[in-house]
Nucleic acid binder design. Structure first.
Length: 320
DNA sequence: TTTGCTACAGGGTTTAGGGG
DNA sequence: CCCCTAAACCCTGTAGCAAA
C-alpha cells in the first residue's frame, strides 16, 4: 500500500478549480465575474465556492448586496492560491527550459590534457549559456571512461576509444594528437645544457604512468626511435599530483600533456616551480576524440553541452 | 481476451427562486 | 433589480461485470 502523497486539504478534495476561483474572487469580488474568468457559468462558480468552504471547514466568503466578500480565511486561501498558480506557471517555464537543454545534469569525462585545454573553457562557456545546468567532470584513463560510458554513467567523454571493447558501440569524432612535454623543476641541471643533450635524459629519475598505458608506451617508443635509451630509474604512479610534487622536489623528469605543462610553467607571472624541458623532438600521443555511444540519444542538457565542447575543440580538428 | 451493457461519478448548464 | 443559491438535468469517461 502506497503512502498517500497528499494530506489535508488536497486529500479532502481541494482542486485546482477551487484555487482558480478564489484567486479570481479576490480580484473581482463578484461570483459572476469570477465565473467568466474561469470560463464557467455563474452557478458552477457558486458551487465551487461552497465546496471549497466545506473542504476548508471554514467560512470563506459572505454574500453582500453587490457580490461576495472574502472573509480573512478566504483571503488567506486566495493569497496562497495565487502563489500556487504562479508556481504552476513557473513549472511550465522550467519544463520548456529542460526541453531546450537549459536545465539538468550532465556527466562528462575527459583524459587529463584535454580536460585542461578544452573542458575548462567549455564548462566556463556552459556556465554562461546555461547557468542552471549541473556539470560533473570525471577525469580518468580512456579505458575507465569508456567503461563508464558503456554503463551509462557518462553522457560522453573526451579521450580515446577504450581498449578491449567493441569499437562499433562508440561514435568518435576525432580531434587531433595530444602533444606531450617533459617537465622538470625550475633550476634543473638539464635546463643549463643545450637541447641536443638528449643522451643525458636517461641519467635522471623519471616519473611515469604504469606500463600498458598509452602515455607510457608512447613516450618509450618515441625515446627509442630517437636512439635514447630508456630511463633506468622510474617511479611508476597513476597519480598526477604525486607526479607534479616529485618533479618539483627532485631532479626527476615527467611527461605530461603540453596543455598542462604550459599551465604550470606560466604560473601567471609568479615564479614557476616547474619548467618545460626544451627538447629537439616531438612526443605525441595518438589522436583523441569526442566520444559518445552510437545510437544513444543524449538528453537535451547533455546535447547542449556536447555542442559546446564540440565547438570548443573544432579549431583543433584536422583540416581546420 | 475482447466486447457490450449498465451504473455512476464528476463537472458542467439551465432554470427557478430568494434576499438586500 | 442585481446577484447569489438550490435544484434539476446533461454530457462524458470509466469501473464493474456478464457474454462472446
Amino acid at each position: 500500500m502506497m503512502e498517500p502523497i497528499v494530506s489535508g486539504l488536497v486529500r479532502r478534495g481541494l482542486k485546482l478549480s477551487h484555487l482558480k476561483l478564489f484567486a479570481a474572487l479576490s480580484q473581482s469580488g463578484q461570483m459572476s465575474i469570477a465565473a467568466k474568468a474561469l470560463a464557467i457559468s455563474q452557478p458552477a462558480a457558486s458551487r465551487l465556492a461552497a465546496e471549497a468552504a466545506h473542504i476548508a471547514g471554514a467560512v470563506l466568503y459572505e454574500r453582500t448586496n453587490r457580490g461576495v466578500e472574502l472573509t480573512p480565511a478566504g483571503q488567506i486561501l486566495a493569497r496562497r492560491a495565487r502563489r500556487m498558480l504562479q508556481e504552476i506557471d513557473e513549472t511550465e517555464r522550467e519544463l520548456s527550459e529542460a526541453g531546450a537543454g537549459k536545465l539538468g545534469k550532465v556527466r562528462i569525462g575527459s583524459v587529463t590534457g584535454p580536460s585542461v585545454e578544452h573542458m575548462l573553457p567549455a564548462v566556463r562557456q556552459a556556465r554562461l549559456d546555461m547557468p542552471r545546468i549541473t556539470v560533473n567532470i570525471e577525469v580518468g584513463t580512456s579505458d575507465v571512461l569508456g567503461e563508464a560510458l558503456l554503463q551509462g554513467n557518462l553522457d560522453f567523454y573526451l579521450g580515446r576509444l577504450p581498449t578491449g571493447q567493441d569499437k562499433r558501440q562508440f561514435e568518435a569524432s576525432f580531434i587531433g594528437p595530444e602533444p606531450i612535454s617533459l617537465i622538470v623543476r625550475e633550476g634543473h641541471p638539464l635546463l643549463r645544457l643545450p637541447i641536443q643533450a638528449e643522451e643525458r635524459l636517461s641519467e635522471f629519475d623519471w616519473v611515469l604512468p604504469f606500463e600498458a598505458t598509452l602515455l607510457r608506451s608512447t613516450v618509450e617508443s618515441t625515446l627509442l626511435a630517437r636512439g635514447i635509451s630508456l630511463p633506468r630509474k622510474v617511479l611508476n604512479t597513476s597519480s598526477f599530483m604525486l607526479t607534479v610534487m616529485t618533479v618539483s622536489r627532485t631532479n626527476a623528469i615527467a611527461p605530461i600533456s603540453t596543455a598542462v605543462a604550459d599551465f604550470f610553467a606560466e604560473n601567471f607571472g609568479a615564479p614557476a616551480a616547474i619548467a618545460k624541458l626544451p627538447i629537439a623532438f616531438d612526443i605525441e600521443v595518438e589522436a583523441y576524440a569526442l566520444i559518445r555511444m552510437a545510437g544513444r540519444e543524449l538528453t537535451p542538457a547533455a546535447q547542449a553541452m556536447y555542442d559546446i565542447v564540440d565547438a570548443e575543440v573544432s579549431h583543433k580538428r584536422p583540416g581546420f
